[in-house]
Amino acid sequence: MAEIEIFDGHNDAVQFIAEYTSAGRDFLLRSESGHLDLPRAREGGLVGGLFALHAGPEHPPENDLIIREDGYEVIYAETVDPLYARRQIEAQRLALETLIGRSGGRMRLAVDVEEIAAARAEGAFAVVLHMEGAEALDGEFDYLHRLHAAGLRSLGPVWSRPNIFGFGVPFAHPKSPDTGPGLTGSGKDLVRTCNRLGIMIDLAHLNERGFWDVAALSDAPLVATHACAHAICPSTRNLTDRQLDAIRDSDGVIGFNLSVNDIRADGHLNDDTPLDLVVEHIKYLIDRVGEDRVALGSDFDGAVIPRAIGDASGLPHLFEAMRKRGFDQQSLSKFAFDNWLRVFALTWKNGRSA
């Protein structure tokens, strides 16, 4: 099989880099901790990805997980204070900027498809800024404009908790993603503003009513950067067939999430999840929406992933399993790289001049 180059639709590595936290790891050196650093990315064929900025809770909850005989439920995370969130987001953005500068050209911030393609051609790792949850914003969107000028190209209005823009979907299995109200008035304004700026709207972590609110408002393709199929694994985080069809009809993309509890039908947090099962789930999505509309959205450093992959360096095992299942080189290239670039080209506007 020819070498596959991969662009990943979602990772949480910024939370663990040394520039952001004193207990973090050096992203430029190979580590045995976590899932992602530059050496392991290179070993696995990764040439770039969306790096999530995300504000954690000010007061981490205790005993928030309820285990039942037939599944689980995580109690809603608290709403985060906007000023607290903004301090975290800005610290993470500056930490990533420092890391890119320290890389000596091995990593580059990319704000349009041409810069991603140029980085790939020149052997640099392309970093695209994403924000997972918009708690750091206010209803005036001044900070959103500043983030866009600094390179932000993808945004999820909510994480799995409520904010002024809408209601995230709490983690639960088995359960419908239709868990409550959708977007607020400010959330609808946020969608319109992102459309004007050319910021991709990420539907991951948004509940079903919020999904349909975005679908009704947005003039861009619908995208979920890291999600799976609810028909296979009835997790609240996964997309129903009707939602998948809406993404297909908008010419959008689903980033396939490697989180085992969203892949497995039983929802178990078990890394002994066979690659055959993973590939069967990918095949279901592609059969539903087409091979142009499914890509990789790993959730590295934010999930338990299959042991057979292990970390970013193990991605070739996934692609080999897909090849054995009958995926040809063109299909693999679309899943690995081309589908993200296609939807970025349909969504982003004006690059650095915006």
Rank of each mutant, 00 (worst) to 15 (best):
R93V: 05
A231Y: 10
G166Q: 10
R248D: 10
G139K: 13
V74C: 01
V14P: 00
H35L: 06
F327I: 09
A215C: 04
A336P: 15
Q330R: 08
F344T: 00
L94F: 13
D213T: 12
H173T: 00
L29Q: 15
R87P: 02
L147R: 09
F125W: 11
V74K: 09
V343M: 05
D26W: 04
V113E: 14
I286E: 12
F319L: 05
E19M: 12
R153L: 04
I305C: 04
S186V: 11
E114P: 04
G139M: 10
G168H: 02
I305F: 04
H230R: 04
P57G: 08
P177A: 01
L332C: 11
R86S: 08
L99I: 06
L258G: 03
H230L: 00
C228L: 04
K188N: 11
A229H: 03
I66E: 15
A321H: 11
H230N: 02
R293E: 06
A124D: 12
V128F: 08
N11T: 08
E73D: 08
A23S: 11
P60K: 09
K175C: 07
G255W: 01
R93A: 13
N339K: 00
G156K: 06
F16D: 09
G210I: 06
A172L: 00
A354P: 04
A231R: 11
I286W: 01
G326D: 12
D178H: 03
L94N: 12
R196D: 15
A13G: 00
N195W: 09
A18K: 15
G351A: 03
F211I: 07
D262W: 08
G297T: 10
G101M: 13
A215E: 11
R25F: 05
S154T: 01
L83C: 02
I263P: 04
A91I: 08
V343N: 04
T98H: 15
A149G: 07
I6K: 12
L137A: 07
F167Q: 15
E132I: 06
R153T: 03
G71C: 00
N11M: 06
D189Y: 14
L285R: 07
L36M: 02
A23E: 10
D178K: 02
G71A: 00
F211P: 09
E140D: 14
D328V: 02
K283T: 15
M131S: 05
S235N: 04
A134H: 07
T184K: 07
D262C: 03
H317M: 10
S176K: 01
K324R: 15
I4K: 09
G44H: 13
H145G: 13
H281V: 08
H10S: 04
R288P: 05
F344G: 00
A136Q: 12
A265K: 14
S235T: 00
L197A: 09
G156Q: 04
S313Y: 13
N195C: 10
R293D: 09
G310V: 10
D266H: 04
G139Y: 14
G182Y: 09
G314N: 06
A136E: 13
S218I: 10
I247M: 03
G210A: 05
Q92E: 15
E280D: 14
M1V: 12
E135K: 08
G255S: 05
L96R: 07
A55E: 10
R120M: 07
A52K: 03
H10P: 03
D202Q: 11
S235Q: 03
G310H: 06
D8W: 08
F337A: 01
E69T: 09
S33H: 05
E78N: 13
A308G: 02
S333F: 01
R30N: 06
R237N: 07
E5A: 15
G44D: 12
